[in-house]
Structure formats: structure tokens, C-alpha cells
């Protein structure tokens, strides 16, 4: 077995120290070592996008990054969107606009939308929103309401004039 490596990772604002085998993916580290099971695994080879988390603020497929690579970096998972149990505006908008059916893609959709709205606070056009979420597959094919929810969340998140 390959030598384990000591890592220090900040996840949702909390510092974790761990020893990991190099082949441990960030997704498995989050789910199995930190018990943060809100990050969902679909294909495990970078196609479905359901394991998307933010690493240093950048959307990242956590099945395509090893935990050892996250050493010294900051990770945001869906659990970090509502740290005190109060829903994030995006989560509230998903709830209100029926933007989740089975819910499997929801964590990845939320984090993908979170990054998108940091770069496009006005949410842009529907086409731009669709392109932004194109890296996450929804098996229920409920994309329409997800687009609607992201647009609604952008309005809620905009600073009042």
C-alpha cells in the first residue's frame, strides 16, 4: 500500500487534519472520512457532475481530485450552504420553485449555481443559466424549474437598491 499523506483541509469553514492514501478521492474523503454525505457520487469518472463541490471557490468534480490535492485548500460542500440550518436563498428558491424531484443532483446544482451567481449576479439569460448547469446531469430531467429557481434566487440575493 502506498504511503499515507498528512493533509490539512478546511471544509465548510472547519479545519480537518487527516492521513489519506493518495488514491483517496476528495469525494470519498468528504463522504466516508468526514461523513459529509451531501456530496453525491454518480459516475465516478467526471461525466455526471453530481459530486461537484467548490474548491477555493471553483466548482470542482470531487471524483476527479484526490483528497491529498486538497491539502491547504478550502472546500465548500452543500452542508456549508446552510451552516445553522437556515436555508441559503438558492435552497429556498429550489424549494419554492419545485427545482428538485429525486434530489440526487440538487447539491451539485446548488453549488454550481452558487459559483455561477458569483460571476453573474444578475443570472444572465436562460441560455447562459442552462450552459452554466450543463455540467450536472439531472436524471429526472427537471431542468426547467432549476433554471427558474436560479433566476429567482438571483433576485433574492441582489443587494436592495
Amino acid at each position: 500500500m502506498a504511503e499515507k499523506h498528512a493533509i490539512t483541509v478546511t471544509v465548510n469553514g472547519r479545519l480537518y487534519r487527516a492521513e489519506v492514501e493518495p488514491r483517496r478521492t476528495l469525494a470519498d474523503f468528504l463522504r466516508e472520512d468526514l461523513n459529509l454525505v451531501g456530496t453525491h457520487l454518480g459516475c465516478e469518472h467526471g461525466v455526471c457532475g453530481n459530486c461537484t463541490v467548490l474548491v477555493d471557490g471553483k466548482s470542482t468534480r470531487s471524483c476527479l481530485m484526490f483528497a491529498v490535492q486538497a491539502d491547504g485548500r478550502e472546500v465548500l460542500t452543500v452542508e456549508g450552504l446552510a451552516p445553522n440550518g437556515d436555508l441559503h436563498p438558492l435552497q429556498r428558491a429550489f424549494w419554492e420553485h419545485h427545482a428538485l424531484q429525486c434530489g440526487f443532483c440538487t447539491p451539485a446544482m446548488l453549488l454550481t449555481a452558487y459559483e455561477y451567481l458569483t460571476t453573474r449576479p444578475d443570472a444572465g439569460t436562460d441560455e447562459e443559466i442552462r450552459e452554466a448547469i450543463s455540467g450536472v446531469l439531472c436524471r429526472c430531467t427537471g431542468y426547467q424549474n432549476i433554471v427558474t429557481a436560479i433566476r429567482a434566487a438571483a433576485k433574492q440575493m441582489a443587494p436592495s437598491p
Partner: peptide, 9 residues
């Protein structure tokens, strides 16, 4: 190229 998640890295 792929999607934002892919282009980021």
C-alpha cells in the same frame, strides 16, 4: 471544452 467544472482545473 466540457463544462465550467472541467475548465476550472
Amino acid at each position: 471544452i466540457g463544462h465550467r467544472q472541467i475548465r476550472n482545473w
